[in-house]
Structures are given as C-alpha cells and as structure tokens.
C-alpha cells in the first residue's frame, strides 16, 4: 500500500477541517483528532478520534474515497477513474458542499445538462452516511445521534415535546 505518500499530500489540505495537530508550513502530520460539527447549533462540536480509526481501518480510502490511500475501490468509479491521481483536498468538505440544496447550487446543476456527477452528496449527508453506514456494517461504533454529538440547549428544545410559543398557526390569528 502506497498510502504513506498519499497521507502527506492529504495532510497538506486538512486545514479545511479544524485540526488539533498544528500544521507545519510545508508538511503536516495526519491529525490524531479532528473537531467535527464545529458550527452545529442543535448538536455540540465533538472530537473525532482519527488515530483510532486509522489503526482499526488501515485503509484511508475506506472514508477518503478516491482522494488518498488506495485510489479507486468502487468498480463503478473505476470505469473512468482507474488512473486518477490523489486529489489536493482530502477533507470531506473540500468536495461535499455544506449547502447542497441552495438556490445557486440547484440552478447551476439544472443548467449544466452535461454534468455527470449530478448526485454528489452534501457534507452533512456524506459524513453521517459514512460514519453510521460503517458502524452499522461493522456492528461497532455509535449509531445514535447523541452517542457522537450531545445536544445543545437549543437541540433539547427542538426535540422536546413542550416548547414555548408553539401554538397552532391559525389560533394566533383569531
């Protein structure tokens, strides 16, 4: 596995997601921990144990598909990307948009009739599916919401059965 070289390339671009390990000027180590959900309003940010996942999975491409590690695993992707090189950006949010359904994104997608990858997942979907999907498949690791990220106060109120100000819409008018 030629993953070491790729890991260095990968690490260069990890600034996109917050990294506890400080980045060196030219070259950075693979972070041991990554803070996810930094801008969460309903759920708190949490530390993702990157080192532990590297130890257990060994294959970077398991999560960082086609950006680093063994490049193309999916035969469907290999149809075109058999010889594609690692990408400059390996963090999820380098490719997966945080706002996949914004009017601008949709208009662009709708106008570009030739675009092949019309179904690229948003950042939130990509991360949840990657984590929960693997945890379910492996039968290990958290799958419940609060097992990864505990709720904020706003999140508690959001899910609660008693919320102030939540009255029938029409009752307010009359």
């Amino acid at each position: 596995m030629s993953s070491y070289k790729h890991l260095i390339v990968a690490a260069l671009s990890l600034g996109a997601i917050s990294v506890f390990t400080p980045l060196a000027a030219q070259c950075a180590a693979v972070p041991d921990s990554v803070t996810l959900n930094q801008n969460g309003t309903l759920y708190k940010p949490f530390a993702f144990n990157h080192a532990k996942h590297i130890q257990q999975l060994k294959e970077c491409a398991g999560c960082h598909h086609h950006t680093t590690g063994t490049l193309v695993l999916d035969p469907e992707c290999a149809r075109c990307h058999q010889n594609s090189s690692p990408t400059a950006v390996v963090s999820c949010k380098g490719c997966h948009s945080a706002k996949p359904f914004s009017p601008e994104t949709l208009a662009e997608k709708h106008a570009d009739k030739q675009r092949y990858h019309k179904d690229k997942m948003g950042l939130k979907g990509a991360m949840h599916q990657s984590c929960i999907g693997c945890h379910q498949k492996e039968g290990a690791g958290p799958v419940g919401c609060q097992e990864c990220h505990p709720r904020t106060e706003a999140g508690e109120a959001f899910n609660s059965s008693s919320r102030l100000g939540a009255k029938p819409a029409h009752a307010k008018k009359h």
């Binding site: 899910n159 609660s160 059965s161 009255k167 819409a169």
Partner: peptide
C-alpha cells in the same frame, strides 16, 4: 435511519402545536 428530525423541523417551521411526546420517542 428513523431519527424523526424531519418531524421536529416541520413542527417548528410550520409552528405546529406541541407533540404529545418528544421527537426522540
């Protein structure tokens, strides 16, 4: 995955009455 977040979001967005039990029930 049946998290019911959509139910909670709908309730809030449409200013619907309080549910009988919380959305993580």
């Amino acid at each position: 995955i049946g998290c019911r977040s959509c139910e909670a979001a709908c309730n809030k967005e449409q200013k619907l009455p309080e549910p009988d039990t919380s959305f993580d029930d």
